[in-house]
């Protein structure tokens, strides 16, 4: 397994934690991440565009996108429900967090709105961890659960941060499938998280 991503991430966390970078630069960081994401997308696009075989395989995948996004989401919800039973979290918090599908910024905001700081914190950490686990564990996930499982596991992050790792582990031909599945979930999360939280917390206070 390639340990480079974990090492680089740890270095980043230490640098951020120890405030080794001046405050003014830190504020630029989220902009830098966005710029890097755009560069990433150009590079991924170029890599996909130059490969002709990719376009033939795309036709075969078209019907699978919505299917994978929705079965993946259902798996997430089941995981959230199971977690609620195992570690004593209210079903509403647990299922709504799981519905976040790795999209931690929106999930955190939504849970803060409809729940409170603790719900928001759980939503934040669990979704951030999901993103990290998917990025670091992708070679392993791809080996066990194949291309559909890999895209599903990545949830909403399949369209941006996890995309390069999925492409690297499973192959270029899933790039577009992965992106499209991530887009569907990214569009659903802002509605699903607060709705599920409200319904479940009303039914099971």
């Amino acid at each position: 397994m390639n340990l480079k991503p974990l090492l680089i991430l740890t270095t980043g966390v230490i640098v951020g934690y120890l405030n080794l970078i001046p405050e003014s630069l830190i504020q630029l960081n989220s902009k830098a991440i966005k710029a890097a994401l755009f560069a990433l997308f150009i590079a991924i696009g170029m890599d996909m565009g130059k490969d002709d075989k990719l376009w033939e395989s795309l036709k075969e995948l078209k019907g699978s996108v919505i299917y994978i996004a929705l079965t993946g989401l259902m798996g997430s919800l089941m995981g959230g429900a199971l977690a609620s039973l195992l570690v004593n979290i209210p079903l509403s918090t647990s299922v709504a967090s799981a519905a976040g599908s790795g999209y931690y910024s929106i999930t955190t905001l939504m849970l803060k709105e409809v729940g409170g700081p603790e719900q928001a914190l759980i939503g934040f950490i669990s979704n951030l961890l999901r993103e990290l686990m998917v990025i670091v564990g992708m070679p392993f996930i791809a080996k066990i659960w194949g291309k559909a499982g890999a895209v599903a596991a990545a949830g909403a992050t399949a369209m941006d941060t996890a995309l390069p790792f999925i492409v690297k582990s499973v192959g270029k031909e899933v790039g577009i499938l992965s992106f499209a599945s991530g887009v569907i979930l990214t569009l659903l999360v802002p509605f699903l998280v607060p709705t599920l939280y409200k319904i479940l917390s009303t039914l099971l206070p």
Binding site: L9, T11, G12, V13, G16, I21, I26, I33, A36, L128
Partner: peptide, 9 residues
């Protein structure tokens, strides 16, 4: 990855 790490830290 480095930038995301800094953000988490």
């Amino acid at each position: 990855i480095l930038l995301i790490g800094i953000e988490i830290g």
